[in-house]
Nucleic acid binder design. Structure first.
Length: 695
DNA sequence: TTAGGGTTAG
């Protein structure tokens, strides 16, 4: 048996494909090819160093198939994430006539359960679990236990995962971690944290780096920066800073909670970055509106030789969408095509979103057409994109097509569909969608409720909006804000104020920055100057909120409408946040109304510095000149518009006849064209809504 | 021969 021992030693020395092949030929030469131990060793060596085809070939040639050999081939497929094949092989294993000891053991079960988890084969996994009831020794193996927990949590069955966990008297850190991450991945973030606390405080189990990754992810999802920071401290104390997955999780936590500066410092401190590190930081910038930084980092990543993956591209495309940078978006599209992940659902969807936000709907539609597996997110990106590009009339058709394709909307998509429909203002359509919401059981969703209120408000039916609002018992801040905004857009400022005070006095909801946008603009539209200013002070002094450019814009609008142009100018000069174009725009519009060319020119100058390609602002300025008879200046502006080739999107009118929506350019020909339609349909029931829509 | 983890789209 000397030769066998020699071969076994040779196995230990094998560290690449070449030496494995050499060993294989020696085994064949020395006549040990029937030795099941050597065969298994050889299979796992091939599994490590060669292609799966070679492993399979070797397996097929084996005269005897022991459970060890089966385990080796199952692992070879599982390691390569070939889950379907792993499952099929397992089925072959249990019905194999060549096998002598083909009863699956703990190794087999943990590998196959993983395949069931990845393939979401709940029933199959449950049968395997049933089989284990007769084999306690295997069932209580820690590896099988963690595989079972992972299987149940990937199938969304956390109560079953918990039952498995409770069977273990002394679960190890991996089992505890499997539960923590199971809860985290199924959206039970509080439970994940509670489970972690139990593990550490009650059971005295020392968390390792993997446990901490799941914990940090839960903190990020809950925006629990306090706990997250303390975990960061723990990571540093324990010397886990070199664990990239953990640092990436921390980076992501700061990114998600909007602490960009800290994320930036952490990012620069990471010496060896991987694609996840880069993608997280690029995504951090995109989500926080820093599109220039995001795209610069994307280029830096490529220059440093790190290959972007689909996730990186999605984040970079978001930055293009934020910046309206169509050229850069197209370049990234090309890159995605070259790298072969253009057709991945998330990439295609991000492309649709980018093209739509860069106002190039045709390119978005091209991407959508090419997509192989359109899911609800892709459909909704298209639908919202049309609304954004002033073609909300197409949205409802897309929604119908989506339902016909068997795609069911979720809560987020319902919100988007309602928002797109609100661009049209067709009451009949709103009622249909409301019916759909009710029949699909989305009634109690506060976000959907708020969208319905907005939709009915924009369709002119404030009564329906109030009905929806009063019908929801647990009113949260989103709902209150939506209703206040509803009163606001109807010019019913007093009622908006009344509702705001009711909210403050009689509800648990605390007004946030959005609520203040709603109430301030309600005051502005109704010309309630004093009340508006009072609300603004309340926001700062009573609620400690920091007004953004949007709030300042409304205050400027408020002062501007009532002719307080100097005061408005003063507010702008003292703004602690960057002045965005719309603030100067509000002042310029006010100057036009009140014929103040002097301040108007200051506003225009600043405005055009910030955004020199917005045709609307030039037109606003030229209108101001024409009202005041400054024809020379007017001519200059007009020629500047021509020179720059700027075009203002033309307003359109929509008319719905039966179930068809028709749009017209809103000029003098509008009415005759409408009449034509009337003639066309004769005595048929016409018109639900006629609305001038500025695109 | 075996385990648990980090980035993305509406």
């Amino acid at each position: 048996m000397k030769g066998r021992e020699f071969l076994i030693n040779l196995c230990k020395a094998c560290n690449d494909g070449k030496s494995t092949a050499k060993l294989h030929s020696q085994i064949l030469k020395t006549g040990f090819s029937h030795d099941s131990f050597l065969a298994t060793k050889l299979t796992s060596l091939y599994s490590n160093f060669s292609s799966i085809e070679q492993v399979q070939k070797l397996f097929d040639e084996m005269p005897q198939r022991t459970v060890y050999l089966w385990n080796s081939i199952l692992r070879a497929y599982s390691k390569r994430k070939r889950w379907k094949k792993t499952w099929v092989l397992f089925k072959n294993m249990i019905s194999d006539e060549k096998g002598e000891e083909n009863v699956p053991d703990n190794y087999t079960l943990s590998t196959v359960l993983k395949a069931c988890a990845e393939l979401q084969l709940l029933k199959h996994g449950e049968i395997l679990h049933g089989f284990l009831w007769k084999h306690e020794k295997i069932r209580l193996d820690l590896f099988v236990g963690s595989a079972l927990i992972e299987f149940y949590s990937k199938c969304g069955e956390m109560s079953d995962a918990s039952k498995v966990f409770n069977e273990f008297e002394k679960p190890d850190v991996v089992l505890w971690t499997s539960m923590v991450s199971g809860y985290e991945q199924n959206g039970y973030f509080e439970k994940a944290i509670a489970f972690f606390s139990r593990m550490v405080l009650e059971e005295g189990v020392d968390p390792d780096r993997v446990t901490l990754v799941s914990l940090v992810s839960a903190c990020a999802k809950l925006m629990n920066l306090k706990l997250g920071r303390s975990v960061h401290g723990f990571v540093v104390r324990r010397g886990f800073e070199s664990e990239l997955s953990l640092v990436n999780a921390l980076l992501n936590m700061y990114a998600k909670t909007g602490i960009v500066k800290v994320a930036e410092i952490l990012f620069r401190m990471i010496e060896v970055k991987d694609v996840v590190t880069w993608s997280s930081m690029i995504g951090c910038y995109s989500r926080n509106g820093a599109s220039v930084e995001s795209l610069n980092l994307f280029n830096e990543m490529i220059n440093r030789g790190c290959r972007p993956n689909a996730v990186t591209v999605v984040s970079a495309l978001q930055a293009c969408a934020v910046a309206c940078d169509l050229d850069e978006g197209r370049r990234i599209h090309e890159l995605a095509t070259k790298r072969g992940f253009e057709l991945e659902v998330s990439v295609s969807t991000a492309l649709i979103d980018m093209y739509m936000k860069c106002l190039s709907p045709d390119e978005a539609v091209n991407v959508f057409r090419k997509m192989p597996g359109k899911d609800v997110v892709a459909w909704v990106a298209l639908l919202s994109g049309y609304a954004l590009n002033g073609m909300a009339n197409k949205s409802i058709g897309i929604f119908k097509d989506m339902l016909c394709s068997g795609i069911q909307p979720d809560a987020v998509s319902m919100v988007k569909i309602l928002a797109s429909s609100s661009e049209l203002g067709i009451l009949h359509q709103a009622e249909c969608l409301h019916g759909y919401v009710t029949s699909s059981g989305f009634d109690n969703n506060a976000f959907i409720g708020a969208s319905l209120i907005e939709l009915y408000s924009k369709c002119g039916s404030l009564d329906y909006a109030i009905k929806v609002f009063e019908g929801i018992i647990d009113k949260d801040v989103v709902l209150w804000s939506a209703m206040i905004a509803g009163f606001g857009i109807h010019g019913r400022g007093e009622e908006a104020l009344k509702l705001f005070h009711r909210m403050v006095k009689s509800s648990a909801a605390r007004p946030n920055d959005v609520t203040f946008v709603s109430i301030l603009s309600a005051c502005s539209h109704a010309g309630l100057l004093l009340q508006g200013i009072e609300i603004f002070h309340m926001m700062v002094n009573d609620y400690g909120l920091h007004p953004g450019s949007e709030h300042y814009g409304i205050v400027v609008d408020l002062l501007g409408r009532t002719g307080e142009l100097e005061k408005a100018m003063d507010i702008i000069n003292r703004m602690p946040v960057p002045v965005e174009p719309h603030v100067w725009g509000a002042l310029l519009a006010a100057c036009r109304i009140h014929h103040n060319v002097e301040i108007g020119e200051v506003a225009a100058k600043n405005l055009l510095c910030l955004d020199s390609n917005h045709a609307g602002y030039y037109i606003l300025l030229s209108n101001m000149y024409s009202v005041d008879g400054k024809w020379g200046n007017l001519a200059k502006i007009r020629s500047l518009i021509k020179e720059k080739g700027l075009k203002k999107m033309i307003g359109q009118s929509m008319i719905e006849i039966r179930n068809e929506v028709h749009s017209f350019v809103a000029d003098d020909k509008l009415h005759p064209e409408c009449e034509k339609i009337y003639e066309l349909v004769g005595q048929l029931e016409v018109i639900l809504k006629l609305q001038l829509q500025h695109i």
